[in-house]
Amino acid sequence: MLAVKVPKREAEKVRRKLIDLGVLAKGYAVKREGEFILFPVTGPVEGFELVEAEFERLERKPHSYREVVEVPDEVRGLLPSSLDIIGEVAIIELPEELMPYGKAIGEAILKVHRHIKAVFAKGSKISGEYRVRELIYLAGERRTETLHRENGIRLKLDVAKVYFSPRLATERMRIFEKTHPWEVVFDMFAGVGPYAVLLAKKAKLVFACDINPWAIRYLEENIRLNQADNVVPILGDVRKVAGKFEADRVIMNLPKFADRFLREAMLSVRDGGVIHYYGFGPEEDLFSEHEAKIKAVARELGFGVEFRGERKVRPYAPRQFNIAIDFQVLK
């Protein structure tokens, strides 16, 4: 096939130009001949030396495990399009009909995502005081501890012992961008510290509370990993911690039950401080019920509230969304 022949020192510049011109042939490996590089092209290119050459075809890499997994046609349409990747661990939600093919699905995920070492299926919903779920082993190594990287920080955790969602990385960065260097932050349900450790890079001080001893153990390790010495880990019930200090910003990342802790959040924020509240809402009316609860608790305490922003964070279930409400407390 037709090729452009250039000296090695000019190869990268020429490659970019061929891409810009739309003439670089896709699916072929470039060829080296002594001090020259040969690029396959789809037609003549003015201003370059053209030669005839044979090129090795590149094997197309699959983009999804669904392209390589072998399951019966009658259940192929049930294969999930998404999975959670936490460090070197992948967690996928499989309908009952696909569970007999769990091993094949797990091995397909390992084949496509080479950095993943272990694959599990969700065995139950998140439940209990510690917000954890049962996991079913599918393929790879039988381990649940991993090191996850996001937003420039490292987080060590065990996916079987603590709650963690990689899908909130963008939301965590949104709060980071709103935080000021002089602020004291209270992370009421801190987990292993994805909010707390990130915000510590910008805030003056971060109080991070969780009732799960495993979460605090990993939080303490993540403080060391990221040199986040301005994070204060607190093991215990947030009800007993609330009101013992005054924060400029409070994070309530407990969407299923956050409304039960609004009183504690408002008692812990200074006059004019901001609370980031998370909940679940139906598509037809995402925010009204949560707004009403926020206003009711504020009235009980004799406070005022001013809503500063509302947004859909991510889909949670059919016609249900994880939502965020930012509001200011006026005392």
Rank of each mutant, 00 (worst) to 15 (best):
E97K: 08
Y101P: 09
I85P: 01
F48S: 08
I92W: 00
E46Y: 07
K111D: 14
R57P: 13
F48C: 08
V89C: 06
I85L: 10
I92A: 02
A118L: 11
E107S: 14
L83F: 12
Y65V: 12
V71T: 09
A90W: 02
E52R: 14
H115R: 15
I92E: 06
E107W: 08
A121D: 01
V112P: 04
E56C: 05
E74F: 04
V68G: 13
A121T: 04
I109D: 00
L83P: 08
R66N: 14
E46I: 11
P72E: 07
L50K: 04
G102I: 05
Y65C: 11
E97A: 10
P95G: 10
I91D: 02
P100T: 09
E59K: 12
L78Y: 04
S82A: 12
P62W: 02
V45R: 00
E74I: 05
S64Y: 04
H63W: 03
E97D: 13
K122F: 01
V75G: 05
K122R: 07
D73V: 08
E74Q: 03
E46F: 10
R114C: 09
K111S: 15
E54W: 09
V45Y: 07
E52W: 12
P62L: 07
G77F: 03
L94E: 00
L58D: 12
L110T: 04
F55D: 12
E59F: 02
L58N: 13
M99P: 12
P80R: 01
L94T: 04
G47M: 10
P100Q: 05
E74N: 04
V75H: 07
A90S: 06
K122W: 03
P62K: 03
V45M: 05
L98K: 00
A118N: 12
V68S: 13
I86C: 03
K103N: 11
F120D: 02
R57T: 15
A121F: 04
G47E: 12
K111P: 11
L83Y: 10
A118H: 07
M99I: 15
K103L: 13
L78W: 00
E93M: 01
G77D: 04
I85E: 02
M99H: 10
L98G: 01
S64L: 06
E46M: 10
E97F: 00
F120W: 07
V45Q: 07
